[in-house]
Design a protein around this nucleic acid. Structure first.
Lengths: 150, 150
DNA sequence: TATTGTTATACTCTATAACTATA
DNA sequence: TATAGTTATAGAGTATAACAATA
């Protein structure tokens, strides 16, 4: 349990983090915005999956995931195969073009981070990753939170 | 200098952080979106300042800051006084209504964080804040980064 | 009836560019 | 001529709700 002062500071850091995300977004090819990149990255990391799983991992509504997926499918980076076990569902999988696109993304993000984090040690990066992971866990499935009225 | 694997993981955490920010946004009054809340919070923290300073602290373009500021000014939460020393400029300051709005924001965000971070120690929160602050410093003024073409 | 996924609509945030007023 | 700030426009991300197809 932390103090009020800490909450203020954390809220401020969270708010200011947008600038970092925008910095990362600026290096993306302009036909591959952050939503598309996120879909490709998840498929690379976790393998084939269905729409609903993508939405869960992105922590967005299924309708949002559907849009991002449609965009990368239009570019030929993934394919949507009907699930034999449930014809309502579609299984997403990376194409060869998708893997090539991932190489581009990977090269660019690595270059950016190598530049920005040139004076960070392995250990520091590990600590940050660990704490960020824990924070995400603590927030859990955020989408269920009820919006407070004015 | 960290390894490729670390970069991947950090990029993933950064991407997934949006869910946390959206969770925080959901508790806001609907006439006070994140941009407005950020302006009020900065004025509370750093005191009166001009437009350009707000934009710098938010790490957004001045046009964006101008919109957020106009919104909170329309609600009567801040006032824009002409700067006697430079009539092009305007100095922003919180009104009594603004301070009351900040009380509301503070209560809500504290409640949310107290819930989400109930099992975090003071020390852990401090570590996270320190590392996030350092990360922001490492990225510096992100807005100058050149966009890469497709 | 319930669930998977798509689409239409609306809102927030953001950057670029054109513009006004002042330095 | 350069700078502070405003506004119009456009693009990306998101959520809600209505809908189609299938379970």
């Amino acid at each position: 349990m932390a103090t009020q002062r800490h909450y203020d500071e954390l809220a401020r850091q969270l708010s200011a983090f947008g600038a970092i995300k925008r910095d990362m977004a600026r290096i993306l090819p302009h036909d591959c915005p952050t939503g598309s990149a996120a879909v490709l990255t998840l498929l690379k990391r976790y393998g084939d999956m269905r729409m609903s799983k993508i939405a869960e991992l992105l922590a967005v509504d299924v309708s949002v995931a559907s849009r991002h997926v449609a965009h990368v499918a239009d570019r030929g980076w993934i394919e949507r195969h009907p699930d034999p076990a449930d014809k309502r569902s579609r299984i997403l999988s990376l194409t060869d073009k998708g893997w090539k696109q991932l190489d581009v993304l990977n090269e660019r993000s690595t270059q950016l981070l190598a530049d920005r984090l040139s004076d960070w040690s392995d250990d520091e990066v590990n600590q940050l990753i660990a704490l960020m992971t824990r924070l995400r866990d603590s927030f859990g499935d955020c989408r269920t939170t009820t919006r407070t009225p004015a």
